[in-house]
């Protein structure tokens, strides 16, 4: 049976993992390459490397880093952040990335999804969607969640699928950072109305939240950052817990 995936996410700025820098008092979350290697050895099923560098130089550093991760890590990884053209994707895949994740650029120009899927195959195009529930509707946001659009989560996700997305990475802004669990109701609706895999993101605080994301949210994969970076949840323990709850995992 196809296993449910556990995906640690590394936010990377100018070549360093930065998520939660303040949380541990200026000690950053580490060198992305060694962190990626560590997670692969601990049983992560996949990794997401999110480039949050704002400068061109930071982006170049990212390409070098992708190459190093590909060289040392024997599980698949997705690279996201600032990708807006065929050339961007080509460079990342040639450096060894398995998939890319696009977000704002796809909303700005939805045809980008078709172009990338046609050129590289839909299996390597993940469309990331940040959405916030406002008065009962899930509104898609761009620019790291700072700007609301007029798009509805479910119709945009469906459009992305029809245009050739191979997977949807859905982050609930209501849940992100709360550690109160994933947005299971919205996840479940996405997972049952779309026919491509859905990655749950935003809200992981304990192992039961992951169980719920799979049982209630019907997610195909679950992504988290800080709970893994700061050792609050060990991937091996998490997978055992999932298995004990009759969820298929690779142990």
């Amino acid at each position: 049976m196809l296993a449910k995936r556990i995906i640690p996410c590394l936010d990377i700025k100018n070549g360093r993992t930065v998520k939660g820098v303040n949380f541990v008092g200026l000690r950053d979350a580490g060198d992305p390459v060694s962190l990626a290697k560590k997670y692969a050895a601990l049983g992560a099923d996949e990794l997401v490397l999110l480039d949050i560098s704002a400068t061109l130089e930071g982006r170049k550093t990212m390409l070098d880093m992708v190459l190093k991760v590909a060289e040392q890590v024997n599980i698949p990884f997705t690279v996201g952040g600032g990708i807006s053209s065929i050339e961007d994707v080509d460079a990342l895949l040639k450096s060894g990335a398995d998939k890319v994740s696009i977000n704002s650029s796809a909303i700005k120009r939805p045809e980008l999804i078709n172009e990338l899927a046609n050129k590289f195959g839909n299996q390597c195009i993940t469309v990331a969607i940040d959405a916030k529930q406002i008065d009962g509707s899930w509104i898609v946001h761009v620019a790291g969640g700072s700007i609301p659009t007029t798009l509805d989560l479910f119709s945009w996700a469906k459009e992305a699928e029809e245009r050739g997305a191979g997977e949807i990475l859905f982050t609930s802004m209501n849940n992100d950072g709360t550690k109160n669990g994933f947005a299971n109701e919205a996840l479940s609706k996405l997972s049952t109305t779309l026919n491509i895999p859905i990655i749950a993101s935003g809200g992981a605080g304990n192992m039961a939240h992951f169980v719920d994301a799979f049982h209630v949210g019907k997610a195909d994969a679950a992504l988290a950052a800080s709970v893994f970076h700061f050792g609050e949840i060990e991937i091996k323990d998490l997978k055992q817990e999932l298995k004990d709850n009759n969820i298929e995992v690779r142990l």
């Binding site: 099923d45 026919n195 195909d220 994969a221």
Partner: peptide, 13 residues
């Protein structure tokens, strides 16, 4: 068949 999610993506035995 579209009874299952396509593509199959992930780890299987």
């Amino acid at each position: 068949n579209t009874r299952v999610k396509v593509p199959q993506m992930g780890w299987n035995t």
